[in-house]
């Protein structure tokens, strides 16, 4: 430490409470002003960023989709998100239906989540009603170990599992015929199995478990509304 830093602040007379309150109040006001200013400036950019990120994710998991419509899926109903007014509070899962250029329903993007090695792994997957299978997956949130667990986002061999992952429903449409399961690397034999990444089994299992939970609960609800979904291509977000 140099001499300039060693110098002590000369002990001043005890300041009045007013001075302290004035200082803290003044600083708090400046702070509030600055934070609100930056918040206001960045809010539209951040909202736009989030929208683009979500859009990219939806179009990534539903191949050939060019527009989307957001829906809210609850145990009894399916409602278009833009039809929800503020006074009607709808509880349910947000789903995104993707349509191709000629307005045909290409698939539905749904969310899945399960605890991984570090924290919850949240994924978005595309379900195609045509093949009754999962056609794509992308990771929305993960704090898995870099270099090991985070390969679920990039490993081409692992992602190939989700080109057509079997998710057929049984005849009463209440559950999957075969639950989705994650198997040890190199032992995949059936189309409903996920081949784990060697060295990242826990994370791979989390993906499989999340998909299984989500498909088991959401798909039975979803299939009831497939007609509505395939006719809702008007006014999709391009």
């Amino acid at each position: 430490m140099s001499t300039e830093e060693k110098n002590q602040i000369p002990s001043s007379i005890k300041p009045s409470s007013i001075a302290m309150i004035r200082t803290l109040g003044g600083i708090a006001m400046i702070s509030g002003f600055l934070v609100v200013l930056v918040y206001q400036i960045t809010l539209p950019i951040i909202t736009e960023n989030r929208r683009i990120a979500l859009e990219n994710a939806v179009f990534k998991v539903i191949p050939d989709a060019t527009s989307r419509v957001n829906f809210v899926l609850s145990p009894d109903t399916l409602i278009r998100e833009d039809a929800i007014t503020d006074d009607r509070d709808v509880q349910g899962e947000k789903i995104y239906a993707g349509y191709n250029k000629s307005g045909q329903l290409m698939g539905i993007a749904l969310e899945a989540a399960a605890p991984g090695y570090q924290d919850v792994v949240r994924t978005l997957y595309g379900y195609s009603p045509k093949c009754m299978c999962i056609v794509g997956i992308t990771v929305l949130q993960s704090t898995e170990t870099p270099g090991l667990g985070d390969r679920i986002e990039t490993d081409p061999e692992f992602l190939a599992n989700f080109n057509a992952l079997d998710a057929r429903l049984n005849t009463d449409k209440t559950a999957l015929i075969h639950s989705i399961e994650t198997v040890r690397h190199g032992t995949k034999t059936a189309p409903w199995q996920i081949d784990a990444i060697s060295g990242a089994t826990v994370t791979s299992k989390a993906v499989g478990k999340g998909l299984n939970n989500s498909t088991q609960t959401l798909l039975p609800l979803l299939v009831k509304h497939l007609d509505v979904l395939s006719q809702s291509n008007q006014g999709g977000i391009k």
Partner: peptide, 10 residues
């Protein structure tokens, strides 16, 4: 302007 007593909080 910052009184010594409240400097850390500030």
């Amino acid at each position: 302007f910052i009184p010594k007593q409240v400097r850390i909080a500030t």
